Amino acid sequence: MQVRTERRSNRDRTEATRAQLIAAARKLFAEKSYAEIGTPEIVALAGVTRGALYHHFADKQALFAAVAEAEAAAVATEIEQAAPDDLSPREALLAGSSAYLEAMQAPGRTRLLLLDGPAVLGRIGMDEIDDRHGNRTLREGLAMAMRAGALRKLPLAALTSLLAAAFDRAALAVDAGAPAAEQMEVITALIDGLMLPARP
């Protein structure tokens, strides 16, 4: 019993330290670019040693990847919460699109995921993260709409990739000051252009 408690306690401490590092890095990466942040700043804000950082992460890039993964997962969660199963395929796609734009307005998130992410992790590395999270939700929504006969049957991977790129451009535009309503108006027109006429 004592051994099991100690193991749980050690695991809890390990997870807490990792979470502290990710939270501190996220705060700093949101405020400045990746290149401007050094590991001494991160460990100071996290309240841990550099040894603790390198115990959990190979280097600053690996820590950034963990931050990007957590941010992408948070965006996907917001999309999924906004598009419950009882919505029609069109409503689900639009609700998810709107939730994406909203989620990307969290301070620093656009830079983390759309600017620094590809620059630090490479396009392939960032695409892998996207495919596990935001792009996964989009792909699932498009596939569901096709199965329901509500959306034109098109190559799913290509459609997901091209629509995701449009959403990312919209998020960047909103981050730069463009009205979110205008971006959503165009996204709605894109999605409606892919929808099939309702069956009689």
Rank of each mutant, 00 (worst) to 15 (best):
residue 106 A to C: 06
residue 136 R to E: 08
residue 98 S to L: 03
residue 114 L to Q: 13
residue 131 D to L: 11
residue 108 G to L: 13
residue 142 L to H: 01
residue 92 A to I: 00
residue 158 A to V: 11
residue 107 P to C: 13
residue 141 G to S: 02
residue 154 L to M: 09
residue 146 M to Q: 11
residue 125 G to H: 11
residue 125 G to T: 09
residue 147 R to Y: 05
residue 127 D to N: 14
residue 142 L to I: 04
residue 131 D to C: 04
residue 94 L to P: 03
residue 148 A to L: 06
residue 97 S to P: 07
residue 105 Q to E: 15
residue 119 A to G: 14
residue 91 E to T: 03
residue 119 A to L: 14
residue 144 M to N: 09
residue 121 L to H: 06
residue 105 Q to F: 07
residue 111 R to T: 09
residue 154 L to E: 15
residue 139 R to P: 01
residue 128 E to H: 13
residue 155 P to H: 06
residue 156 L to P: 13
residue 130 D to V: 03
residue 138 L to H: 00
residue 99 A to C: 10
residue 146 M to L: 02
residue 97 S to K: 00
residue 147 R to V: 02
residue 129 I to Y: 10
residue 151 L to D: 01
residue 129 I to N: 08
residue 139 R to D: 02
residue 118 P to Q: 09
residue 140 E to A: 14
residue 130 D to M: 07
residue 117 G to M: 12
residue 144 M to W: 04
residue 141 G to M: 00
residue 95 A to Q: 05
residue 100 Y to D: 05
residue 94 L to I: 11
residue 96 G to L: 02
residue 157 A to R: 13
residue 137 T to E: 13
residue 116 D to K: 12
residue 95 A to L: 03
residue 133 H to W: 07
residue 101 L to T: 05
residue 110 T to E: 15
residue 123 R to F: 07
residue 98 S to M: 03
